[in-house]
Amino acid sequence: MIKFIFTTLLIIFFIRLVAPTLFRWLLGMFIRKKMRNGTFFYTNMHQQQQAQQQQSQNGNGRAKGDIKIDYIPEQPKGKTFNGGEYVDYEEVK
């Protein structure tokens, strides 16, 4: 029973005091490493640029920035706005 209580107190002590300090230290090391490599902020943006370049190279031969319109819907002809409908109302005081 005493061994269980001692082990439980030791685990609580570790979780309460040692784990946050260890976590902050490890997170700081990770961020410093990423900042040194220059990949902390720009990793995702670099991957997106590579994907866009591959799409433009693998596309149908069009230059980057060209616009292709597949379908233009027909516009209805002769519709004009006639002013709407008149609605009666009574003012309640």
Rank of each mutant, 00 (worst) to 15 (best):
T8R: 05
T8Y: 06
L9R: 02
I11S: 02
F13R: 00
F14P: 01
F14C: 07
I15N: 04
I15M: 03
R16Y: 06
R16K: 13
R16D: 02
V18E: 05
A19I: 10
P20V: 00
P20Y: 03
T21S: 14
T21K: 13
T21W: 11
T21I: 11
L22A: 13
L22Y: 10
F23W: 11
R24A: 11
L26R: 15
L26F: 14
L27W: 14
L27F: 13
L27P: 01
G28W: 05
G28C: 05
F30P: 05
I31M: 12
I31A: 09
K33C: 12
M35H: 13
R36Y: 09
R36T: 10
G38D: 03
G38Q: 07
F41D: 12
M45K: 15
H46I: 09
H46S: 13
Q47R: 13
Q47D: 15
Q47A: 15
Q48F: 13
Q48M: 14
Q49K: 11
Q49P: 00
Q53A: 07
Q54I: 07
Q55R: 15
Q55L: 12
S56H: 04
Q57T: 08
Q57I: 08
Q57V: 07
N58S: 06
G59R: 01
G59T: 02
N60H: 13
N60S: 09
N60I: 05
G61H: 00
G61C: 00
R62F: 09
A63P: 02
A63L: 07
A63Y: 06
A63G: 10
I67M: 10
I67K: 04
I67N: 06
K68Y: 12
K68R: 12
I69C: 03
D70F: 07
D70S: 09
Y71A: 08
I72V: 05
I72R: 05
P73I: 04
Q75Y: 04
Q75G: 05
K77D: 01
K77Q: 03
K77G: 01
G78L: 01
G78S: 04
K79C: 03
K79E: 00
T80V: 02
T80N: 01
F81Q: 02
F81A: 02
G83E: 01
G83D: 03
G83Y: 00
G83A: 06
G84Q: 03
E85S: 12
E85R: 11
Y86A: 07
Y86R: 13
Y86L: 14
V87L: 04
V87T: 10
D88Q: 07
D88T: 09
